[in-house]
């Protein structure tokens, strides 16, 4: 299928926070309550539309376990977006965010868009991390923030799409070097490269309005 842009994402965060479930909900629109431990890295893909443009998302879902950490690091550099996920019912997964963020910042390209996600928002009764805490952390580190539920699908689409919008905006602003595929962005086969200035003003406004 033809697409205007292709973005590479990675999903990172502690084991058991629901990374694979978020991906499954996004790509297959279903929830699997019992999920096998991810070994290494698994791949998923979906097409979305932003600003009337088809955008292909290629997503690499990484294993959260410590033993795979060195493998998953290899994926940071080539990704345009990262979903950093914690579990709102497990305080420790929130506490580890700093480590994850350091790791990501160290190995990724500086323009990578990071979306902070507090998953399992359906389990309100077992909540250990307040929404305000997540918001504060995101503000402090310059991330976008959202609470999601892979189980009820609440905010899942938005999380992936808003990240894409942010990347798209950065492209329009000229922050990303779209000709270097190592940044995790690829221009589609039929994309007219000449009129990028034309679409930038429109795109920037639209994406800005839809975000947050």
């Amino acid at each position: 299928m033809a697409y205007a842009y292709l973005f590479k994402y990675i999903i990172i965060g502690d084991t058991g926070v629901g990374k694979s479930c978020l991906l499954l909900q996004f790509t297959d629109k279903r929830f699997q309550p019992v999920h096998d431990l991810t070994i290494g890295v698994e791949f998923g893909a979906r097409m979305i539309t932003i600003d009337g443009k088809q955008i292909k998302l290629q997503i690499w879902d990484t294993a959260g376990q410590e033993s795979f950490r060195s493998i998953t690091r290899s994926y940071y550099r080539g990704a345009a977006g990262a979903l950093l996920v914690y579990d709102i019912t497990r305080r420790d997964t929130f506490n580890h965010l700093t480590t994850w963020l350091e790791d990501a910042r160290q190995h990724s390209n500086s323009n990578m868009v990071i979306m902070l996600i507090g998953n399992k928002s359906d389990l309100e009764s077992r909540r250990e991390v307040k929404k305000e805490e997540g918001e504060a952390f995101a503000r402090e580190h310059g991330l976008i923030f959202m609470e999601t539920s892979a189980k009820t699908a609440s905010n899942v689409e938005e999380a992936f799409i808003n990240t894409a919008k942010e990347i798209y905006e950065k492209i329009q602003e000229g922050v990303f070097d779209i000709n270097n595929e190592a940044n995790g962005i690829k221009i589609g086969p039929q994309h007219p490269t000449t009129n990028s200035t034309l679409s930038s003003s429109q795109g920037g406004q639209q994406a800005g309005g839809g975000c947050c």
Partner: peptide, 9 residues
């Protein structure tokens, strides 16, 4: 090579 960051790339 696998555990050295950037090794493969």
């Amino acid at each position: 090579i696998l555990v050295s960051p950037m090794g493969v790339s």
